[in-house]
């Protein structure tokens, strides 16, 4: 399968970017071959909706999972609708380390948003562990 990782650079050796929509880089990884391909972050500098544009890019790339720091409530809804499993709280380690933990089955998907968004009607992200990060996913 294919999965996406947000990174501070363009390789698996870069750290996981805590942000989703405004991440520095996105990598699409084929878990069977281990090949990692950089994917342009579509709307990192959009005034709004950066996380939604990133979610669309993941759908187009055929990713079935996302490894990141935190996603906001709107991106969380879009990823949920797209059937993409979300793994959060992975900042502070390399993309490769996060990928290895995923491959080892050591990660638990968590589709509820951990970052804060602006939508008061929707579920507002509050990290169970207390760590809240990112803006707008």
């Amino acid at each position: 399968m294919k999965l996406a990782i947000t990174t501070m650079g363009t390789t698996l050796d870069d750290a996981v970017d805590p942000r989703f929509g405004r991440a520095t880089g996105l990598l699409i990884v084929d878990t069977t071959t281990g090949a990692a391909t950089p994917l342009a972050v579509p709307a990192a500098h959009a005034v709004q909706g950066a996380g939604l544009a990133a979610a669309e890019a993941l759908v187009k790339a055929g990713a079935k999972a996302l490894l990141t720091g935190a996603v906001g409530p709107k991106a969380a809804r879009a990823l949920e609708a797209a059937g993409i499993a979300v793994y959060q709280g992975l900042e502070g380690q390399s993309a490769r380390a996060a990928l290895e933990r995923f491959n080892a089955g050591a990660l638990t998907p968590e589709n509820a948003p951990r970052a804060m968004g602006h939508a008061p009607g929707g579920a507002i992200g509050h990290a169970p562990g207390g760590a809240i990060a990112g803006h707008e996913g």
Binding site: A43, A46, Q48, G49, A50, L52, A53, A55, E56, V59, K74, R77, A78, L79, A81, A82, H118, A119, G121
Partner: peptide
């Protein structure tokens, strides 16, 4: 970016 194509029909984010 208030409409996202992540499925067969667009998803709306009214906010």
């Amino acid at each position: 970016n208030a409409l996202a194509m992540v499925g067969p029909v667009p998803m709306l984010f009214p906010e």
